[in-house]
Structure formats: structure tokens, C-alpha cells
Nucleic acid binder design. Structure first.
Lengths: 145, 145
DNA sequence: GTCATTTCCTTAACATGTTAATTGTTGCCA
DNA sequence: TGGCAACAATTAACATGTTAAGGAAATGAC
């Protein structure tokens, strides 16, 4: 019994990629009319949910690496969806806040996003859906617990 | 009861991203010494498992889009890990095959990859691991069933 | 106070993801 | 056979992922 890697059709990394693609495809389609990307949407959602915060916290909550967030923040600022302000007490740090224009993007598309997610919840069933979220969380070393 | 999107910590797309990052991080670390990327590894694995095949099938089995595969195939060819040959009967099509050098990359690192995956299997337990794979597959519209 | 260290953020460089446009071939059919 | 639709693959353009290096500001030892 050799210890070879599993066939690709039962590979966890590939399964994760395909599932993500399946979930993101309709969301990307929905976002295409807004002109913002999936990651920009994620940043706006975090800002809408938690309010003004520093860049490190934002990167963590958005699951983005710093270099990506730097670019995305610049893009969103240029589009007028967020504002960037320096921390006067520590001028290295920076705070980011969603604007009314950015909030409108969220408000206008949140219902449709909710419907898409509800569709997947229905596909799996409420119980399996929660089970899936729990199992995924257990693969995330950053999750507390 | 407003129908708003779920908080980001119970968001399916974000949970998928974080789980993928948790799983891929040690695999990327393992691959860093080989000089190939995670996607290049995936392509080589598919070729090692199924043998010579046309580009469309390879893209499908590797879960890669065509433009990505074009670049990756060129990179792997330059590194001597795969060969590309035109189909004489239909000169639009192309076949890709792993070389002995490429196969050696797989052979040399497959055990370590297997150990990493086994670690996650142990983390979740055999039962939950299989459950997770099943649930993920149900989110993939490309999966038959 | 000064300098090395640390921290936060940005840039750089390269690979991939994504969509759209383009090129080269094949097949069809009037 | 001539022309057009369909197809395979590439290229282009832009955004992000990833790692490494760089720059500015704060911290701490002395």
C-alpha cells in the first residue's frame, strides 16, 4: 500500500478551488454591472459591516494580503467609494472608511447577493450548509477555536 | 426580518477563500524548493495521473482557464517538464505530455504532499473529511451528479 | 539625543485569474 | 470552390496573489 497522493478528483485543494469557482461565478456576474471586482466588493462589505478601521484590520477581515489591499484601496479611493486618512498619533498608520457612494453600491446589490447565497443554502439544505461552514472554518488556522 | 447578506465571518465565499489558504499554505511552502508554483504542480499531477492529453481536457482536469494554461504550458515546456505536440489530423489542437524530468518532480514530492493532505484528514477526522469533499463537490456545477 | 530595530505601508517583479479580442484551422454548404 | 460559421489556441489588458525589497515613522537601548 503505497502512500501516493489522492487522485485529483478527490483532492481537497482542487475541490476547494472548484467549489469557490461555483460559488463566485454568479456573484461575479452580478458584480459585473457595478464595475467593481469580487475583492473590491469584499472590502466594501467589511467596511459597511464594521465601519472605519485601520488597514491591518481591514486586510485581516477581508482575507487580503497587504500588497493587494494597497492596490485595491487606491482603486476604491479613485472611484470615490472609500476615504483614506492618516492616524495623527502614528503617522505610519492609516484609516479607511466607506463613503456614501460606496455604501450605495452595497445597499443596491446586497439583496441580490443575499439571493445568490440563499440559493446555495437551498441547494445544500440548511443543515449541510452550516456543516460546510463549520468544516471550512476548521481548515482555517486563523480562525479562533 | 430584513434579508441582508450574512456577516463576513459566516460568508461562504470568504470561508472558502480562508480554507483554501489554510490548505495551500503548507503545500506552497513544500513547493517553494522545487521552483514550481501551485498551479504548475497541479498540471503536472494531472498529466502524471492520466498521461498525454489534449489541452482542453487538461484545462478542465486542472481547473484552469485557457489563457492561464497557455502560459503555464509554455513555462513548463521551457523548464523541460512537458512536451507539446500538434495534432496532425487537426492542426488547431495540441497534445501535452509530461517528461521524465517532470515525472521526477512528482515522484520526489508526492510523499510529502500526501503527508500534508493526511494531516488535514487527521485534523478533521476521516468521516468529516469525506463529508467536506462531498459538500464541496455539490457546490461545483461542473461535477456530474 | 543617536542609532539599530521594529512596525506599517508601499513598490517591485513575476505568476495567475478573468474577460475580450485576435489568429489560425477546420467544416459546412450554397 | 468560395465564403462563412465554428472551434482551438493565443494574445492583450487589467486586477489580484505572492514573495521580496524598500521607505517612512515609531520604539527602545545606550
Amino acid at each position: 500500500m503505497t502512500k501516493s497522493i489522492p487522485p485529483t478528483n478527490r483532492s481537497l485543494p482542487i475541490a476547494l478551488i472548484r467549489a469557490r469557482e461555483g460559488v463566485m461565478s454568479p456573484i461575479r456576474e452580478m458584480l459585473s454591472e457595478t464595475g467593481i471586482t469580487e475583492q473590491q466588493w469584499r472590502v466594501l462589505r467589511v467596511l459597511a459591516e464594521f465601519g472605519r478601521m485601520d488597514t491591518k484590520t481591514l486586510a485581516d477581515r477581508s482575507s487580503l494580503l497587504f500588497p493587494s489591499l494597497t492596490r485595491i484601496a487606491a482603486t476604491l479611493r479613485d472611484k470615490g467609494f472609500v476615504t483614506q486618512t492618516r492616524d495623527d498619533k502614528d503617522r505610519r498608520r492609516q484609516f479607511i472608511e466607506i463613503t456614501a457612494t460606496g455604501q450605495k453600491i452595497i445597499d443596491d446589490h446586497a439583496p441580490q447577493a443575499a439571493m445568490i447565497v440563499a440559493g446555495f443554502k437551498e441547494t445544500l439544505g440548511d443543515q449541510d450548509y452550516e456543516t460546510l461552514l463549520d468544516l471550512l472554518t476548521r481548515l482555517d488556522p486563523g480562525a479562533q477555536g
